Simulated scan of single mutants.
Amino acid sequence: MHTMWKGSISFGLVNIPIKLHAATEDKDIKLRNLHKECHSPIKYEKMCPVCNMEIKNEDIVKAYEYTKGKFVVLENEDLEKLKKENEDKAVEIMDFVKMDQIDPIYYDRTYYMSPGDGGGKAYSLLRKALKESEKVGLAKIIIRSKEQLAVLRVYENTLVMETIHYPDEVRKSEDVPNVPTEDKVTKKEIDTAILLIDQLTSDFEPEKYTDDYRTALLELIDSKRTGKEIVTPVEKEPTTNVTDLMAALQASIDKTKPKKKAAKKKRTTATKAKKEA
């Protein structure tokens, strides 16, 4: 597993050399843009609209647009110095909190943490302490030139670091338009909705959820590549346009009723018919 960051985590006087590894991977299918006539890949050139010429990487500088059309130019040396000053510091756990106090809206990316040279015992200590205290650590870390807030927690038998958004990066929910302020629903509708939720409740098994679009796209690509006949996938049942809320809830409940009772009744009827015969 590729190491993408090396450093150390500390809490109190305990210092743990660690390595970060990406815990997830992007499996999106990348499609290229081709010229329709000759199927050549399209090139995207860096062009200066004023000089009307292609620009090389060494001729590009970074800048911050503080107002429309006005920029503060930042030299690479300044950015590298700032980055090094922060990256050279050990990542210190600032606080320990209960995980359920952090809403999932804050979470961003997940990284596995492995102990660096000589850090196995301290790694085990932090893992055990987090497990038994049922808490997570809050720290700051610089990854790819950005200072990020991060949560350290235990996943299975491994320490993971989850970068989380700062409060000012999460938009206010009250700014969402057209959200009803009051629940104008009847008790019967609520009870029926809860009954539907109960019927659809199960244990979380991540393996049973798949990316159907990606699978279908890969099959389409393979069919075109090998010249096979392209098979149209079976269409899902059309959704009924039910405008009445109670009718929609009842129809959903009828559709999701456990099939065990029906199967049992069928077997009982068959056994009874056999005996009579």
Rank of each mutant, 00 (worst) to 15 (best):
D212H: 10
E189H: 02
L195G: 13
P206C: 05
Q199V: 04
T192H: 04
T192V: 11
K188E: 15
Y209N: 09
L195I: 05
E189I: 03
A216W: 05
T192W: 03
I194A: 12
T201S: 11
T192Q: 12
D191E: 13
L196K: 02
Y213E: 05
T192D: 01
A216I: 06
I194H: 06
D198W: 04
K208Y: 01
P206H: 08
D198H: 10
L200W: 06
T215H: 01
I194N: 07
A216P: 00
P206R: 03
R214K: 14
L200F: 01
T201I: 00
L200I: 02
T210Q: 14
S202R: 09
D203P: 02
I197G: 06
D203E: 14
T215I: 15
I194S: 08
S202N: 05
K187P: 06
T215K: 08
T192K: 06
D203R: 11
Y209A: 11
F204V: 15
D198S: 10
D212F: 10
A193F: 04
F204M: 10
K188L: 15
D211A: 03
A216Q: 07
T201M: 04
D191H: 10
I197F: 12
T210G: 00
D203M: 09
I190H: 02
T186S: 11
Q199C: 13
L195Q: 12
I194E: 02
I190D: 02
Q199G: 09
T201L: 04
T186C: 10
F204G: 02
K187A: 14
L195Y: 02
T192S: 11
E205Y: 07
Q199A: 11
D212P: 03
I194R: 06
I194P: 01
D212C: 03
Q199M: 14
F204N: 08
L200Y: 00
D198F: 05
T201K: 07
Q199H: 12
L200H: 03
R214I: 03
L200A: 15
K188P: 03
D191T: 08
D198P: 00
E207R: 08
A216R: 10
I190Y: 04
K187S: 12
L200M: 15
P206S: 05
D191G: 10
A193W: 01
E189D: 04
Y213M: 00
I197T: 08
Y209W: 13
E189G: 04
D203S: 13
T201G: 02
T215Y: 00
F204C: 10
F204D: 06
K188S: 14
E189R: 02
D203W: 07
T186E: 08
E207Q: 12
P206Y: 05
L200K: 09
T186W: 04
R214W: 01
D211S: 01
R214F: 01
T215A: 15
D191P: 01
K208H: 05
A216Y: 05
I194K: 07
R214Y: 00
L200S: 11
T201P: 04
D191M: 14
P206V: 14
D198Y: 12
K208W: 08
I190M: 10
D211H: 00
T192C: 04
L196R: 05
A193P: 09
A193V: 12
T201F: 02
E189T: 00
E207T: 10
D191I: 14
E207H: 10
I190V: 08
L196P: 00
T215C: 03
